[in-house]
Nucleic acid binder design. Structure first.
Lengths: 204, 204
DNA sequence: GTAGATGCGGAGGAGGCCTCCGTTTATCAA
DNA sequence: TTGATAAACGGAGGCCTCCTCCGCATCTAC
C-alpha cells in the first residue's frame, strides 16, 4: 500500500548531482521513532495512537508524519527486519535437513514466530488486506517459500503443481485468528494436513 | 467479544415476574439501525462512522449506542443472519450429494460467499481476533462444519483425527487476504490441497 | 386518563488524524 | 570560523470520531 518511509541513508542523487548528506538529527529521529513504534505496537497492538508513538519517541507529531506518512509505513518499517529474519531461517533450514522436512519445519517456525510476535500478524492484518504481505516483506518471504518448495519438489516429496504463494497465503491464514485459545495447536495440525495434501498423488 | 445487542423481543422475565412489553419504538429503531448499518457496511466497509449509521437510520447517536454498545455488536447483529444462511446451505448440500463431496462443495461455497459479501470477512477480522467467529455465528457455522465432517468421516472418505474447528479456521484463513488479486482462485486451490490432505493415509 | 417506566436525542468532552508553516539546526563553502 | 541556506523540527489547530450523560418525550399498563 504505502512503503514511503524514505530510506534514511543517503540522499538519492539525481543525475550525478553532488548531494547534501542527510542530516544527523534525521537519522537519530528515525531510529527513535522505530524503537518507540516497535515498543508501542508490542505493548498496545497496532492501533496505538500515532501521537502516542511520537510522544514515546520524544519527537513532534509532525516529525513522525514526515518520516512515515501513514500508519502502514511505520508498521512496514518496524517489521521489515523481523520478517527478514524469518526469511533467512529458511536458508538455514535447507542446509541442515532434507528439503521436504525443511519446508515442514519452516512452516512450523512461521507459527512459532507469529506466536512470539503476535503483533506481526495483527499488524499485517491491520494494514488492510493481506495484499501487503508482499509490500511489507518485499517478496523476501515469498522467495524463501519458493525456494523451499522448489527444493522439496525437486526431491520428489511434493507434487508439482503447487503455487508457493498459495502456501504462503495458507500459512498466513492459519495464523489468522491467533489469540483465540488453542490457535497455535490448531495451526500446527493444519500444517500437517496441508503437508499431507502436498504429497504426490499415488505414484511418486 | 461483545454480543450485547439486547434481543429486541420480550423483556427477559426474572424469576417469573410478569414483565412489561418492549416498546414499539424500540423495535422500530432496532430495525432501522440494522438496515442502515447493513447498507453502510456494504457501501463503505466496516470502518464506517457509527454516527453516520445513526444518521442514515435517522436516529440519535445515543439511541444507536443504547441498542449496540459497541461496533462489534452491530456487526455481529447485521451478519448473524447471513452467516445463518451459509450454515443452512450445509444441510442442503448433505441431502443432495455424498458427504465428502458435500464437504468439498461447502468449502467452495464458503469462498464464494465471502467473495460476494466481502464485508463479512472484513467485519469478522475487524472485530479483532477471530475468536469471535464463534461469538458471532453462535456456533451455528461450527455445527455445520462438524456435521459435514462427521458424515464425511462416517463414509470413510476422510481421516478420523480431524477437528472441525481446525478446518473452519483454515477456511477462514484462506479467505483472509481477500481483495489481494487472485485470492479467490488461490483459496480454491488451497481447499483442494486441504481435501487431499484429509484423505485417510494409505489404507482406507 | 394518568403514572411512571422506557426510550430518545444530541450536546459536549476526550482524544485521534493530519496539515501547515514559523522556528531551529546541521551542513557546506569560503 | 562564520554565514548562508537547505533540511528538519514541532505543535497549534481544524476536522473528525467515539462514547457518555441526562433532561425530555413517548409508550404501556391499569
Amino acid at each position: 500500500m504505502d512503503n514511503n518511509a524514505e530510506p534514511p541513508g543517503q540522499i538519492r542523487l539525481a543525475a550525478g548531482e553532488p548531494a547534501r548528506k542527510r542530516r544527523a538529527d534525521r537519522l537519530r529521529n528515525h531510529e527513535l521513532l522505530l524503537a518507540a513504534a516497535k515498543a508501542a505496537f508490542a505493548e498496545l497492538g497496532p492501533e496505538v495512537s500515532l501521537e502516542d508513538i511520537a510522544r514515546r519517541a520524544e519527537v513532534g507529531i509532525g516529525t513522525l508524519y514526515r518520516h512515515f506518512p501513514t500508519r502502514g509505513a511505520i508498521i512496514a518499517a518496524v517489521y521489515r527486519r523481523e520478517v527478514e529474519q524469518l526469511a533467512e531461517s529458511a536458508e538455514r533450514l535447507l542446509e541442515t535437513m532434507p528439503p521436504a522436512e525443511a519446508l515442514h519445519a519452516w512452516m512450523r517456525l512461521f507459527v512459532d514466530y507469529i506466536s512470539t510476535k503476535k503483533v506481526i500478524a495483527a499488524a499485517l492484518s491491520a494494514i488492510g488486506g493481506g495484499a501487503d504481505l508482499y509490500a511489507i516483506s518485499g517478496a523476501r518471504i515469498s522467495d524463501a517459500m519458493a525456494q523451499l518448495l522448489t527444493r522439496a519438489r525437486a526431491s520428489g516429496a511434493v507434487k508439482s503443481d503447487v503455487d508457493p504463494n498459495d502456501l504462503l497465503r495458507a500459512l498466513l491464514g492459519f495464523t489468522y485468528g491467533n489469540n483465540s485459545p488453542g490457535w497455535q495447536a490448531s495451526a500446527l495440525r493444519l500444517i500437517d494436513i496441508l503437508m499431507d495434501g502436498l504429497r504426490p498423488s499415488r505414484a511418486d
